[in-house]
Every structure is written in structure tokens, then in C-alpha cells.
Simulated assay, not measured.
Amino acid sequence: MSDHGRMHMQRSGGSAAPDAGAAHPYPRITSFRSRRSALTEAQQEVWDRLWSQLGTQARFDAKPAEHLDTTAWFGRRAPVVLEIGCGTGTSTLGMAVAEPDIDVVAAEVYRRGLAQLLSAVDREGVSNIRLVRGDAVDVLEHMFAAGELTGVRVFFPDPWPKSRHHKRRLLQPTTIALIADRLRPGGVLHAATDHAGYAEQIAEAGDAEPLLQRVRPGDELPISVQRPTTKYETKARHAGSAVSELLWMRRR
């Protein structure tokens, strides 16, 4: 983690270093694939100039738990939304611009995707986006406290379509339980997928989580659930894949 990134992390009071031999409360899920992450010259220039200010690396190892101090990082106190797997940031950027009073933390494992989003943030002069490179479960578990988030967005996570790979899907009951714990009362979990089987699995897990309830027509929500249409989504629709929007609210 950069020195600047450490400025925006605070130790949670009374935390002890985790026991390396203890069972992890939230099982790690290999929900992403290996990809090339070489940056273009322009992307590298923006990365070198802005990453230490707007980005941080999620690394925890055997240290005491540390939480993001989003008030210090964004320079204000505002509702915070975590977007997991932001990709190249099309939805992240569009939704952040539409909601300037909401601060967005975009988490992604792929450096190139983060670099594309960072370049767009620089180009558009957007001030309410920060970036984290790291695993979603690590980010949720260690970087945010219970009841801290106003929203969590997970758009088009890898469906791992083969049956033997379903265990690698991100949105399993344990991860949804962790998301629910990190949401404040009334906070929103917004997931979207174009894979029918994965949509069924997410729906079943979300409905089974006791801290969550389905968002109903007329419910007043603290964040927008209107997403920009991405190139990936357009291709999926043209291929005949229906997109499922799945929305829950943390019980008040």
C-alpha cells in the first residue's frame, strides 16, 4: 500500500492480529480470472500521477484490521457506495456523475480496468470516485465496518457457467451475508447479471439472508439504481440474454 493510501486507513479499536491457524469467517472465493494488465503509455502516465492520491492497494496479511477513513480520503462526510468488480468503470463513472453527493469506492483486481477508470476520472474531472485494487471479500471484511455502507453494487460478476466452477461465483450466501452486515439500515445491495442460472442463485441467496428484504415498488432508496448501459450489456442483449436486476434493502 502506498504511503498516501495508509493515510486513509485507520486501525479498528482493540483489534488483535488474526490467528493464522484460525478458520476464516468468510471463505475466500477465486471469483476472477487471470488477465493481462499492461497499461498504455497514457494510462501509465495517469497512474503514476494520480494513483497515490485516488487509489490504494488492499493488503492485509497478518496485520490488525484497518478500515478506510473515507471522510479523510474524499475530504468530506457523505454516503459511501462500494462497487465490486467495476471493470473499466463505465457504470461507476456514469452513476457517480449523476449523484455528486454520493462517494463511490470502486474495487477491482485488474490494474488495466482501474487505469481506464482513473483516466476517465482525470479526463472528466470527477471528484467523488476512489479506487481500490484487491479481492472483494478482503475489501468488504477489512476496509469497511459494520453498517458503514449506503450501497453495494455488483454488476455482471463472472458467472463461471460450468457446474464444477459454480463454487467460484462471488455472490454466495457467505459473501451476501458479509455485504448485508456492512450495509447500514436502509442500505441497498444492487446486483445485475445476464446469466439466468446465476440470477437464480443470487436471488435464492439474497432472499435467504435475514438482514435483507427485497426492494419493492415505491420503496424510498438512498441511492440511484439506474445504471448506464455498458458495451458488454448491449452485446448480451443482442445475443438474446435477458438482464436481471436484483435489489435488496438492509432491514431497518
Rank of each mutant, 00 (worst) to 15 (best):
V80C: 12
L178F: 02
H165A: 01
V139I: 11
D138Y: 02
I84M: 10
E124M: 13
L118A: 08
V152E: 06
R77L: 14
E99H: 07
R6I: 02
M95V: 14
L171R: 08
R168G: 12
A106P: 05
F32I: 11
M1S: 14
L131R: 00
R35N: 12
I202N: 01
S37V: 12
H4Q: 12
G206Y: 03
G87E: 00
W73Y: 07
G87M: 01
H190P: 06
A192G: 12
A239H: 02
L183W: 03
H8W: 11
H67Y: 08
I202G: 05
A42Y: 09
W73K: 05
E99L: 04
L221R: 01
P157G: 06
P228S: 05
A180N: 00
G206D: 04
D101A: 15
R49H: 07
L140N: 04
R112D: 14
P100F: 08
G55P: 01
V104W: 13
M9Q: 15
P161C: 09
A115R: 00
V109C: 14
P27S: 05
V105E: 09
G134T: 01
F144G: 07
G113L: 02
R130E: 02
M143K: 00
A191M: 08
V81E: 06
H142Y: 14
G21Y: 05
E45A: 15
A199F: 05
R250S: 11
E200S: 14
M7P: 00
A65N: 07
Y232L: 08
R133D: 08
L183S: 04
C86E: 01
A38Y: 07
L178P: 04
P222V: 07
L171Q: 10
I202Y: 00
D3H: 09
A180S: 03
G125P: 08
F144I: 02
A23L: 13
E209H: 06
I29Q: 03
A199M: 04
L39T: 00
L212K: 09
R123F: 07
S52E: 09
H24V: 15
R59F: 15
R214F: 12
T71Y: 05
I102E: 01
A106N: 03
